[in-house]
Structures are given as C-alpha cells and as structure tokens.
Computed example of a mutant assay.
Amino acid sequence: MPTNQQRREQAKRKLERQLARRAERAKRRRIVATAITVGGVVVVVGLIYLLVVLNTGENTPAANGETPDPSTPATQTTGGPCKYVTGGKPASKPVDAPPDVDPSPNAGTVKVNLKTGQGDIPLTLDRTKAACTVQAIEHLVKAKYYDGTPCHRITASAGLKVLQCGDPTGQGSGGPGFAINDELGSLPKPPAEGQPVPYPRGTLAMANSGPNTNGSQFFMVYGDSQLPPNYTVFGSIDAPGLATLDKIAANGITPGQNGPEDGAPKTPVSIETATVS
C-alpha cells in the first residue's frame, strides 16, 4: 500500500504532466494564430500589389470626351494654328491627322459630293465660317475616310430635323483619332444665356460630345431646327442634296433609345463615296 510520501510524489508528477500538456497546447495555439496572421498579411499585401500593378498608368481623357481608356496615350497638338488634338482615342478607321498649315486657308469654298444609296448629297464647305474644320473635313474626304460609312441617326422632332453621318462604326461613338476645336463665330447670339439658336434648313454642322471634341461626325439639317450655339457650322447643303434628305426622312425612322422621332433611318443610308469636286 503506497505511503503518504509516495502518494504526494505521484500527485506531483501528475500535476507536472498536466501543466506540460497545457503548455504544449498553448504553444500550438500560438503557432497556429501566428501562421494565420502572417497568411492574412501575405494575402492582403498580394491583393494590394495586384491592384497597384493592374491600375498603373495615367488615364488621359479621350479627345472625343468619352470614358478614358487606361491604354490611351497622352494627347498632343499639331504645330499649326488649328492645333488639332492627336494621340487620344484610336481612330475608328485608319487615317492620318490633317495637315495644319500656316496660315490656314480661310477664304473660298470646297465642293464635296456624298454619293449614297438614296441619292447624291452635294455639299458646299465654307472656309470663311470654319477654316480649321473645312481643312480637316476636306482631308478626311480625300483620304476616303467616309467611303463605305453609314449615316446612323436621323431625327424628326419639331425642333430637330437632322441626318447624322461620319462614324465608321455606325454607333455614334467613333471618330478619326484627332479632335478639331470649336469654331462658333458664325452662329447668331442666343436671345438669353442657355437659349437655343436657329440652325436653318440646309445647314451643315459638326456633331460633338462637348467643347472642342469635333472629329469626323457631322449633321445635315433638312428642316429648320433649334439647338444650343455649340455646334460648328462649316457649310451648307445644295438643293439636290436637300431633295435626297427629304426622301430619306420620308422613308421613316427606326425608333431608338430617345423615342420614335430619333433613331436609325428605316431605310439604311450609307455614304458609298465622298469626293471633292
């Protein structure tokens, strides 16, 4: 039968074993907690690294005012008086920037004919109204940029009757890879700030997405319209061209997002060729 001394020694050894096991379990818990903490830090650091790498690069606003593309290079301007903005959003159809000669030709007119499947649309570009715009549009015509491109939009509301063309993609967002500054000097002054001004039947003007974002898109007014004085007028539509526009308008509209009076021409219209007379 064990003595009291032996029982005390057995109890002491049992207590020591219990304390050792508790210490070992506590050590394992600390090791696991440390590993989890370190792993979490590694994951967070890795995510931060990926975010930094994937978002490296300066976003430069596209010349046509659309959402910036991180791959878009910085813009530059040509060295002449027109200062065409280049290097923004890539061209929808390959074409060089227009020549920026000094001085810009600012007298006389340029005759351009748009041959479409619905008939010819002869235009008169007027350098006295918008010298830099006419220089650029003449360049695009001679470079055959407009050949084989659709007229993607027609409107027929009481205050806006236009056919819009000049985007090779046909989506209303394409352009030539350069921008032309606004030339608004020929427009009448609005009756009050923020009020529209008349764009009479026969007006030829540039479409844009904000100040100084003109590219290749233009609109032809086939019925007296009212618009803000923000659109460069650079010429007029000759009488045979207005007859063609009337025919296109009479064929109707495929309603778009802006309602039944604004959409694509119901009978598709494409510029087969654009030529300088």
Score class of each variant (00 low, 15 high):
Lys161Arg: 14
Ser209Asp: 10
Ala136Cys: 03
Gly175Met: 05
Gly166Val: 06
Thr149Lys: 06
Thr169Ser: 15
Asn208Ile: 00
Pro168Thr: 02
Gly177Cys: 12
Tyr199Thr: 00
Glu193Val: 02
Leu123Ala: 05
Pro211Asn: 08
Gly166Cys: 13
Val141Ser: 06
Leu125Gln: 07
Ser186Phe: 08
Phe218Ile: 05
Ile121Ala: 10
Leu163Ser: 07
Thr133Glu: 08
Gly194Asn: 08
Val141Asp: 12
Phe218Gly: 07
Thr213Glu: 04
Arg153Cys: 03
Ala205Glu: 06
Pro200Thr: 05
Asp167Thr: 02
Asp147Glu: 13
Val141Leu: 10
Gln195Asn: 02
Pro198Met: 05
Gly119Ile: 08
Gln195Tyr: 10
Pro211Cys: 00
Pro190Tyr: 07
Arg127His: 14
Pro196Trp: 03
Gly170Met: 11
Pro191Gly: 08
Thr133Ala: 12
Thr128Asp: 11
Ser209Glu: 01
Gly175Cys: 09
Pro190Ser: 07
Asp147Gln: 13
Ile154Trp: 03
Glu183Phe: 13
Cys151Met: 14
Pro198His: 04
Gln164Phe: 11
Cys165Val: 04
Leu114Glu: 04
Arg153Tyr: 03
Pro150Ile: 05
Phe178Ala: 02
Ala131Asn: 10
Gln118Val: 00
Thr128Asn: 09
Gly166Trp: 12
Cys151Ser: 12
Gln171Ala: 14
Lys142Tyr: 00
Pro191Val: 12
Gly159Ile: 12
Tyr199Phe: 15
Val112Asn: 07
Lys111Trp: 00
Pro198Ile: 02
Ser186Asn: 15
Pro150Asp: 13
Pro211Tyr: 01
Pro168Asp: 06
Pro188Gln: 10
Ile137Phe: 15
Pro176Val: 01
Leu187Arg: 04
Gln135Asp: 04
Gly159Cys: 00
Ala179Ile: 02
Gly185Lys: 13
Asp120His: 07
Pro188Met: 09
Pro211Asp: 10
Thr203Ile: 07
Thr124Asn: 11
Ala130Pro: 05
Asp167Val: 04
Gly119Gln: 13
Lys144Ile: 00
Ser173Gly: 03
Gly174Tyr: 03
Thr213Pro: 13
Leu187Phe: 09
Glu193Ser: 12
Gly119Lys: 11
Glu193Leu: 09
Pro196Ser: 02
Val141Ala: 02
Glu183Thr: 06
Ser209Val: 00
Val134Thr: 02
Gln217Leu: 09
Lys161Ile: 00
Gly202Ala: 09
Gln135Ala: 05
Ala136Thr: 01
Gly172Gln: 08
Thr213Lys: 07
Leu163Pro: 14
Ile180Thr: 00
Asp147His: 14
Ala207Asp: 08
Pro188Cys: 10
Lys111Thr: 12
Phe219Tyr: 15
Lys115Leu: 15
Arg127Leu: 04
His152Val: 04
Gly185Asp: 14
Lys129Ile: 01
